[in-house]
Design a protein around this nucleic acid. Structure first.
Lengths: 146, 146
DNA sequence: TCTCAATTTGTAATGATTACAAACCAATCA
DNA sequence: TGATTGGTTTGTAATCATTACAAATTGAGA
């Protein structure tokens, strides 16, 4: 577990500190999973994460990936995105933003949007703790390609 | 199948016409499922629909409910709402609106909202065919009750 | 080194959804 | 009327992501 390059260690230390700061004990698996999630712009699924890390962590179990992501979400440093009916994706960006899913290439794009309630009364007195905004359609690439 | 009251028949005929207008052959099951979906404000799941109609249609199969909802969605007279990770809900309102889910009582509330893109460039040239806006939190009732 | 609690792991169970093939029904035609 | 045909419904079995659970492992502190 100490065969990493110096640069890797430095990076991992940063992530480790970050996890600790958020009340998460920074195990090897957790650090690697968080690093991968942070570095990936594709909002990976559990399966994708698991397959990507299998080489580095040969003993990795899919249950660990599930457990770890649950911890991240509980502590507020990751969020689940259920933009597909059949698979949950994960993201380290926890600020409010929208996700566009291209139904041709399945790519997911982030975008910023403002949401303003039209009829204020409906949700008056409601406590809103989480928001999800999903757009679906065909991305520029795919519609130009055809 | 002809033991309904006159009022029921009139209503069913309306629904039947509506289905026909949308290219769907109005079978008994389809009419009943659409009626239930339309009359329900709770965005029911397949299970809820199935259980609610079991008495009226003793031979009903859950597969039929799945098939029927798929037809409705394909023809654009219903939409799927994946506000929960683990169950899909259905709605006959196909105009753009948001859904609030109370995580205490699991109730779902509709609301109207305006979405304006902050950074127009990101989605420029993208074709948007569907939108979903979900809020999560605690509804007025539940937060007052505690 | 020993101990304890937390973490990780593998296997088995769960449960929603889908695949599939047989049964059924409704309309059309001989 | 009876046969045919295509679409609809039904039940069962398969799929697959996720969860439950218990054993194995790890790591920090005494």
């Amino acid at each position: 577990m100490s065969t990493n390059k110096a640069g890797d260690d430095m990076h991992s230390n940063h992530v480790g500190e970050f996890l600790k700061d958020n009340g998460i004990k920074p195990s090897y698996q957790r650090i690697k999973i968080y690093e991968y999630l942070m570095g990936s712009m594709t909002h990976p699924t559990v399966d994708t994460i698991y397959n990507a890390l299998c080489d580095q962590i040969p003993t990795l179990s899919k249950t660990t990936v599930y457990n770890t992501l649950k911890v991240f979400i509980d502590k507020g440093i990751a969020m689940a995105i259920t933009i597909d009916d059949n698979e949950v994706r994960y993201d380290t960006r926890t600020d409010v933003h929208g996700h566009f899913k291209c139904e041709k290439c399945n790519e997911i794009y982030d975008f910023k949007a403002n949401i303003e309630l039209e009829d204020e009364d409906v949700l008056r007195g409601f406590e809103i703790t989480k928001q999800q905004l999903f757009f679906y359609g065909v991305c520029k690439h795919c519609s130009e390609a055809k």
